[in-house]
Amino acid sequence: MTSFNRSTSRRLQKLPQIPSVWEGDRRPLSSPHTPFTDPDAKGDCILWVDASEGIVRSMDMVDPALGPEAIVRTLMQAIEHPQSPAKPGRPQRIVVRDREIQFYLRGVLQDLDIAIDYVPELPIIDELFRSFAEVIDSQIPDLPPKYAQLLHDKALEVWQSAPWRFLEEQQILSIEINQWDVEKLYASVMGMLGIEYGILFYRSEDSLKRFRAAVLADEDELQQDLEEAFLKQDCLFLTFDSLHENEDDDLGNLAQMPLSEIEPTFGNIHPLEGLRS
């Protein structure tokens, strides 16, 4: 078992011992009613709460794969660098609801004169996690789950059809919608140059013309004004990247990658909202 080195133990022993009981726990931060669908969004929440004062001393989100050391690191924050208005200090007693955490902490904290006890319930932490679950339940997803897979599949169909083999960016398609408060969209296809792949769907012809004019402007002006012109667009977009993209990837080879390596991204640009994806 990993333990504190002697200098760390001496440093912690110098802190005042507070006559209080702290609750500590580690739980997945998700709701049973609306579990996260994005694997990257999943995580364990570690909480240390001063039950005597009713305040959170430290909180952290960690990868579920991390070991019990993570809960000790968050405890160290609670002891040495607690959230305001708490002051640094050691508790007299810690209570946890997990036997494994209890035994682990007993071994790690044995030199700090802190009692580590098991209790079946942690009233303050239980209430906090109930509040977290209510917030998660109340969140409205950007896209209803029943449409997410369909949209993803349709995007990959666009990738397979590769319209950039036939259309240049300046060859605009006018698409009549006449539904959902949208009359027309003006589609500009990117990809013939092999740099970026995707489709921009402009909500107005004026927005399309303004951005095209900015792109074709003098090079010196382009460097100064292109970012502003980009954010002034009024469009939806679909772009494609490598699923495992990193800084060393050669994006020029994206078109040669297998379909399983292609990741579509959807988003919106509006002058008053900026970029959302």
Rank of each mutant, 00 (worst) to 15 (best):
A214H: 00
I101D: 04
K154E: 15
P120L: 03
G107R: 05
A213S: 15
S131I: 08
Y147K: 05
D113F: 12
A217C: 08
R210L: 06
A217V: 09
V182R: 08
I124E: 09
M192N: 11
L150G: 11
F103T: 13
P163Y: 01
I124S: 08
E183I: 00
K87L: 14
W180Q: 13
Y202S: 07
L231K: 04
S161W: 10
K87R: 14
A213C: 12
W180L: 14
V96A: 15
I175D: 04
H152V: 04
L216W: 06
P145W: 13
E227H: 09
A213F: 09
F103R: 14
E134F: 00
A229G: 02
W164Q: 07
E196M: 04
I140Q: 03
F166Y: 14
G198E: 01
E157H: 07
L112V: 12
W164L: 08
A162V: 02
R99D: 12
E100N: 15
K232F: 12
A217T: 14
S138A: 15
Q102M: 13
I125K: 00
L128H: 06
V215F: 13
S138K: 09
R165P: 02
A162T: 07
P163T: 09
D181G: 04
D225P: 00
I140G: 10
P144Q: 03
L109E: 07
R203I: 00
L156N: 11
P123T: 03
D98E: 10
A214W: 08
R165M: 11
P91C: 06
L128G: 13
L173W: 01
Q170S: 13
G191A: 01
Q160I: 08
L109C: 02
R93L: 12
E228M: 12
E196G: 05
S138P: 05
Y202F: 10
A229T: 10
D220W: 03
A214V: 05
V182I: 15
S138W: 07
V135Y: 09
P91G: 04
S207E: 04
E228W: 10
V182G: 09
R99I: 11
D142K: 13
A229S: 07
V135N: 11
V95T: 07
K209N: 01
R203Y: 14
L112C: 01
K209W: 05
W159N: 00
D220Y: 10
L109T: 02
I175M: 00
R106Q: 14
L226Q: 04
D153C: 11
D220A: 06
K184L: 08
V158K: 04
D113H: 12
D113L: 08
V182Q: 09
E127A: 15
Q160R: 01
L156M: 15
D225W: 02
L208S: 03
Q160W: 02
D153M: 02
I172Q: 08
A213W: 14
Q139V: 13
Q171H: 02
E169F: 09
G191W: 01
R93Y: 13
A187V: 05
W164M: 10
G107E: 01
D126I: 05
V108Y: 08
A162D: 03
M190T: 11
Y104S: 00
D142V: 08
Y118K: 03
D111P: 11
R106M: 06
R99C: 06
G191S: 04
K184R: 15
R99H: 03
I124C: 01
E176K: 15
Q139H: 15
R130Q: 14
L109W: 01
P163Q: 10
V135D: 11
S161D: 15
S138Q: 02
S138C: 09
S131Q: 14
R97S: 12
W164G: 06
I125F: 04
A148C: 15
